[in-house]
């Protein structure tokens, strides 16, 4: 919900809000499929701040989904919290992508890419 607020704060518009909830780790592929089915999605922000949830496991799920669906829209990651170091390393190794240090920067880049 906060990610959506920050998108709107920098003048972007969220194409959707999807809370996966619960056992989220296994649902990244169907979730991403749902999001990408929306033709209004022009860029995608993945913003994790892991507390109880482990960002390395979640990032693994997103990477699997990415590899399964090979999306055409650009992705922008910002990963913090539990397991973030492993998650960032995985992102770099498998997708060749970097995580933004600031959620604000990831979101601004995503808005620019969507314009």
């Amino acid at each position: 919900m906060t990610t959506m607020d920050v998108v709107s704060h920098y003048g972007g518009r969220a194409a959707n809000f999807l809370e996966i909830g619960g056992d989220a780790y296994t649902k990244a592929t169907p979730a991403l499929e749902l999001v990408l089915a929306n033709p209004g999605v022009r860029s995608l922000v993945v913003n994790f701040c892991g507390a109880f949830a482990r960002t390395d496991v979640m990032t693994g799920g997103v990477i699997e989904a990415f590899e399964a669906l090979s999306p055409k829209v650009p992705f922008f990651f910002c990963i913090h919290g539990t397991g973030a170091d492993e998650a960032r390393a995985m992102l770099k190794d498998r997708l060749g992508m970097e995580s933004y240090a600031l959620m604000d920067d990831a979101i601004r880049a995503a808005i620019e890419a969507a314009a």
Binding site: T2, C49, A51, H80, M103
Partner: peptide
Amino acid sequence: FMPAFNDTVFRPGRVGVLSRSGSLGTL
């Protein structure tokens, strides 16, 4: 179930934080 042991997030100090969301509070 907070990541209290993660010292990039929690360290002793003098700011009190209250939050309706665990994740957003962690951020």
